[in-house]
Write a protein that binds this DNA or RNA. Structure first.
Lengths: 223, 223
DNA sequence: CTAATATTGCGAACACCGATCGCAGTATCT
DNA sequence: AGATACTGCGATCGGTGTTCGCAATATTAG
């Protein structure tokens, strides 16, 4: 799919480009979530009809993959590597998490999409950072996979906490509290008792750093 | 939503039940994925019309939440606790992962659903296992959340490996390999070189156990 | 220069989706 | 017995992803 040519070489020049469509779709997703990214909405934003988009994209899922790869391109790969895999991967993970916070819909993507060109650049950089570690080739890929998993995991919790004051989350916790006490779940009741949701955003950041460091150290140094 | 009564007390007896509908929906999802779970398909399997389902369920998302909670009920909570939080949580996590492997669509659920009655039982048991650890109440909930994240993470990789021989995955890796070599991504090329996908299912299991143990130990013993 | 060819833009349409409305039928309560 | 509240469900609405066919346009071949 990533190797399919951007345009044919015979006909008239296309009025739009794949990246243009991707950008419009990302705008829609940033504003209204993944559900707002329908072919009709994207087409409307570009001032055309839905059928036209299929000249650039074979299916909606492909558009979603393009969007995901575009956001992978937003991850800053600058700063030369220090040589310490843990620290280098940590900074990479922090930047990846920022991108997830900027585009919350990334967490709603159906099955995590295939890695495109920008995703390959990111993967290459991550593997480069991991190079000094004494790991087998497959273990290297698994390590990066786990790292990405931690990124999405913490991005999810941070986003949930960020939208906490809204109705649904609050109603849910209160239901959980009352149901827990009424139906004799003492441990849940106890866990909810202590200052619910009092942690700051700073806390979750440092928690993320601590966790990533620990996991990476454990995976690398004791193979 | 979980407190809404199963049926009214005035009218005629409902011909179906919420759990019956949930079971039918789970069957459909097991066979054809989440996309196969449409109100029309569920209704057809129950021999009725789509509109009837809305007497039992306010929305499709609620049905999905019911399905998720039902699978939470499949997690075996037996075996008395040993007193070692790490080991007890590990066995719990292994069982939860089995359920995810049995119902792959759990990984495709939009936003992880609200915890229902069966999910509360699971959470209670997890917190009970974690009780001996010296953690603050919020840290306890975060620990279980992270544990669940690891479960879904490894379930995802195991399912991907399981469906590997099929077309898409293979085509994808081969594309990635050629693209990596052609576009000068030496580290990706190297990581792919070493016996791609040679790890057995046993390997991923032990890897999962090792990871969970390490992460839990790190979170519990050094607060 | 002309004719064949390949490609684009896009209106119209198809099948499916989640959800709502209204009404006939039925059980319970007053 | 009448009011009340509930269930079952056909008909329907607006929205979705995707396909088809055709006019318009640019490149290539003769």
């Amino acid at each position: 799919m990533w190797s399919r040519p951007e345009r044919g070489e015979r006909g008239p020049a296309p009025g739009r480009s794949r990246s243009q469509i991707t950008a419009a779709a990302i705008e829609l997703a940033d504003e209204g979530g993944l559900a707002a990214v329908s072919m009709r909405q994207v087409a409307k934003r570009l001032g055309t009809g839905p059928a036209s988009l299929y000249r650039y994209v074979t299916t909606r899922d492909e558009l979603l993959a393009l969007m995901a790869d575009a956001t992978a391109g937003e991850i800053d790969l600058g700063d030369p590597l220090s040589g310490d895999p843990v620290e280098d991967l940590l900074t990479l993970a922090k930047r990846a998490k920022q991108v997830h916070l900027r585009h919350p819909w990334l967490l709603d993507l159906p099955t995590e999409p295939t890695v495109g060109p920008r995703g390959m650049d990111y993967l290459e950089q991550a593997l480069r950072a991991l190079a000094p570690a004494p790991l087998s080739p497959p273990a290297r890929l698994e390590t990066i996979g786990l790292l990405n998993g931690l990124v999405t995991l913490f991005a999810r919790t941070e986003l949930r906490r960020r939208s906490s004051p809204a109705d649904p989350q609050l109603a849910h916790t209160s239901y959980l509290a009352t149901a827990a006490t009424e139906e004799h779940h003492p441990f849940i009741t106890a866990a909810l008792a202590g200052s619910p949701g009092a942690e700051t955003e700073q806390d979750t950041h440092t928690l993320f750093e601590r966790m990533v460091r620990r996991v990476l150290a454990g995976l690398i140094e004791i193979p």
